[in-house]
């Protein structure tokens, strides 16, 4: 995994695993690899991976079962909430940046529609 050196590594690992959960690469109830294996998979250190996992466990997205390992939550509403949260973050970022260019809400919507049409034509 390629890390951006400016962003905390534990945060990037968390974002990576959340992405896999939302896209279904990691299914509800699926067991995660061991902490050391995850560390090797993403080339980060065990302590950093552990910190990412701890935050995901605290957020209720990962269930830690003593002696058995870490599992993606079976609670699909939590996954839906997570997805909504990530979409909101992305949209908010784009919205704020466009708003900073003095675009009105209507202009923002139009530019987004225009982009999607153009993008469709290009493909």
């Amino acid at each position: 995994m390629h890390f951006d050196d400016k962003i905390p590594i534990y945060y990037q690992i968390k974002a990576h695993i959340y992405h896999e959960i939302i896209t279904g690469t990691l299914q509800p109830g699926e067991k995660l690899p061991s902490v050391r294996q995850l560390a090797l998979d993403v080339t980060a250190n065990v302590n950093t991976v552990q910190r990412a996992l701890s935050e995901m466990i605290a957020a209720g997205i990962i269930d830690s079962k003593r002696g058995k390992g870490n599992f993606v939550t079976m609670d699909e509403t939590k996954i839906t909430d997570l997805k909504t949260q990530l979409i909101t973050e992305q949209v908010a970022r784009a919205y704020q940046q466009l708003h900073a260019l003095n675009l009105s809400d209507e202009e923002i919507l139009n530019s987004l529609k225009h982009y999607m049409t153009q993008r469709g034509n290009a493909e």
Partner: peptide, 14 residues
């Protein structure tokens, strides 16, 4: 290292 990234918003090398 993650404190540096969070506190100063820079990479470790920078």
């Amino acid at each position: 290292t993650d404190t540096i990234r969070e506190k100063y918003d820079v990479g470790i090398e920078a």
